[in-house]
Design a protein around this nucleic acid. Structure first.
Length: 624
RNA sequence: GACCGGGUAGCUCAGUGGUAGAGCAGCGCACUUUUAAUGCGCGGGCCGCGGGUUCGAUCCCCGCCCUGGUCACCA
């Protein structure tokens, strides 16, 4: 790496790669209520207290240390109080009872004076309130600067990542490495420092793998050894050196040069327990990624899943497209949209709840096989299975019907599981889920009928689900609440969710849904109350929703009008009228089948994750 | 929305109506193959926020905020 010679400026900045992510959700045709939003909370770092408030606290050595700048000459870099000795701990404790009271009084005084205004928002770079550890790290950074080390260099040129080294040389023995004299250059974050005076070890992480670095004073230039001495847990460095194995057989780089790459100014979570606080893991995902290696694996699988889906569909002639995510008429699902506003046009816009109607317009346009993988947004509640933005695959296949989709879905899921997770059979909680075809198939009404029969210990007649009154009677027998506005179909759906959904662990196609709850699906030729639609359940949740597409414009018009009636009746999740969509159907849409698959839920299944937040890098959190 | 649990040092967690604890991390010293290194010494806390009760609250009471879970709502 040749000292600073390898560092050179003027490289183009990294381009941020767009990456699909998002949540699962009841797919097309389901919805959830939203909770209240928009609360704010006063939050901020303490502002420095004026002198009249400091009281005896100001006399404590600790305050002294905090207020003063670190003393670099002391070797230890810690500033001692004027007497030269740290104040004994017991001393401080003794002094504490007073300040305690004083703090409270002080606060009250402040609030009176300031008219109870909350303190100003946090200013992150203040030093007076920061912990010793942060001051220490800053001091170490300044020391590096004084040595003339570029502390934020522009680039480094690693020959291999830690993961590459482990993969390439992980199986080579000590003698092989000794004979080969392999010199390498790598970079990463320092995740452990074990010093022995003259023999020292670092653990370097590239985010995937870790490799040990051996530091000896007599193998490094004085400058580089000084850099080592000033390293903190979490710093980024580059190293060059020879590969060998230690006495304990650990693959290690014997460092001949060190380059400092970036400072970690804040202390990291500890090495052993890591970061377990779930809230912090989601809010500060970067920390989670640094210290919890399994997190990286989840998102690597996520990336492979999306790539495998793309590859599978592309290989079968499906064209990937991108349709609007901001729509003037939100459609394609029964769900509440997020509303926004376009200033120049002065119109309301809605974040899409589904791409469905646009993709079907494309089939009208002659794109016979089309798909999209991207985010949907639903302004509804959040849960372990629901994030307000989530990623969905939708695809449409001309000339096919929902039975064809079942076959394709079996192939797709098996293929993706093999490629992304390495197997068709995956563990999920206490279960083992097999994605090997064929999947079980059961009609919705039969599933409900059987479950209700078992629950009630009597034979439930299929006809009971066809009549609104009898279905409602069954619901009340089973203690399932229904509303007067719900028809027989809606009641059946509700019964299904209560009686069956959670028990469907192995992949199961539940097919033939009531027309009432399926405004975009095609009816069965011999049964207008029923549509050719299925949902795929795995591990107790809905993974896919698919149907033969309704392409009769007159029938579509009638369905929209029925939805409008429901909307007028207070259902703000009912589907909006989309006249252009009906017009598109009037130009003629080929017979087609379409399907939506919740990518986040698929990732959950393949990574054995039980919260959607574990498969979304930055799940929505209430601002703190 | 209801109920249950959590919020204490940078992290992981104990704990108590009477001066706040441990392990790791940090600082100092020692140590030439460690790997949760070790040993000795040291520093670090608005005990989530605001009220109340009390001589005294981190602890008890009330309210609020954030959060995990269960249920409900929704479909």
């Amino acid at each position: 790496m040749g000292g600073g010679a390898s560092l050179d400026a003027g490289r183009p900045a990294d381009v941020l790669a767009a990456r699909p992510r998002g949540g699962g959700r009841p797919l097309r045709g389901a919805a959830r209520l939203c909770g209240t939003a928009c609360r704010w909370r006063r939050r901020g770092r303490r502002r420095p207290r004026p002198d009249h408030c400091r009281g005896r606290r100001a006399l404590a050595s600790r305050t002294h240390e905090r207020a003063g700048s670190p003393h670099p000459a002391a070797g230890g870099l810690r500033v001692r109080p004027p007497g030269g000795h740290p104040v004994a701990r017991g001393h401080q404790r003794g002094a504490r009872a007073g300040p305690h009271l004083q703090r409270r009084r002080c606060r009250a005084l402040h609030q009176r004076r300031a008219g109870c205004r909350p303190p100003p928002p946090s200013t992150r770079m203040t030093t007076t309130q920061e912990s010793d550890q942060i001051l220490q790290r800053r001091a170490n950074l300044e020391e590096l600067r004084k040595l003339g080390v570029p502390v934020y260099p522009h680039r480094f040129d690693p020959q291999a990542a830690a993961a590459d080294l482990v993969q390439a040389h992980g199986d080579k023995g000590a003698d092989v490495l000794e004979a080969a004299q392999i010199t390498t250059r790598t970079a990463g974050r320092v995740l452990a420092i074990r010093g022995f005076g003259k023999a020292n070890f670092l653990v370097l992480s590239d985010g995937r793998s870790r490799i040990q670095v051996y530091i000896r004073e007599d193998s490094l230039s004085p400058r580089d050894f000084r850099i080592y001495k000033l390293l903190d847990f979490g710093d980024w460095i580059g190293v060059e050196g020879r590969l060998f194995r230690t006495k304990t057989n650990e693959l290690t780089i014997w460092a001949s040069q060190i380059e400092f790459l970036a400072k970690c100014l804040l202390p990291l979570p500890e090495k052993w327990h890591g970061l377990t606080d779930i809230e912090t893991r989601y809010r500060q995902r970067y920390l989670d990624l640094i210290v919890n290696p399994d997190v990286r694996r989840v998102f690597e699988i996520r990336s492979r899943v999306v790539a495998a889906v793309r590859e599978f569909l592309t290989r079968r002639g499906f064209l990937e497209v991108e349709t609007p995510m901001m729509q003037s008429i939100p459609g394609g699902a029964l769900a509440r949209p997020f509303v926004t506003h376009h200033n120049a046009l002065d119109i309301p816009l809605y974040m899409r709840v589904a791409p469905e109607l646009y993709l079907k317009r494309l089939t009208v346009g002659g794109i016979e096989r089309v798909f999209e993988i991207n985010r949907n947004f639903r302004n509804e509640g959040m849960s372990a299975q629901h994030n307000p933005e989530f990623t969905m695959l939708e695809f449409y296949w001309a000339y096919a019907d929902y039975l064809d989709l079942m076959g394709l879905t079996e192939e797709l899921l098996g293929d993706v599981a093999r490629q992304a997770a390495g197997a068709e059979v995956v563990p999920y909680g206490d279960h083992t889920v097999s994605l090997t075809p064929p999947f079980r198939r059961v009609s919705l009404r039969e599933a409900v009928r059987a479950a209700a029969s078992a629950r009630l210990n009597r034979v439930v007649d299929p006809g009971e689900l066809r009549s609104r009154d009898r279905a409602a009677g069954l619901a009340s027998e089973l203690d399932v609440a229904v509303t007067p506005a719900m028809g027989a179909g809606a009641v059946t759906m509700k019964l299904f969710e209560h009686l069956c959904e959670g028990d469907l662990v192995q992949p199961t196609f539940v097919y033939d849904f009531p027309t009432e709850v399926s405004p975009l699906s095609k009816q069965k030729a011999d049964d207008p109350e029923t549509v050719e639609r299925f949902e795929l359940y795995v591990a107790g949740f809905e993974l896919a929703n698919a149907f033969s597409e309704l392409n009769d414009p007159a029938e579509q018009q009638r369905r929209f009008e029925e939805q409008l009636r429901q909307r007028a009746g207070g259902d703000d999740e009912a589907h909006a009228m989309d006249e252009d969509y009906v017009r598109a159907l009037e130009y003629g849409m080929p017979p087609a089948a379409g399907e939506g698959i919740g990518i986040d839920r698929l990732i959950m299944l393949l990574t054995n994750s039980h919260s959607i937040r574990d498969v979304i890098l930055f799940p929505l959190m209430r601002p703190k």
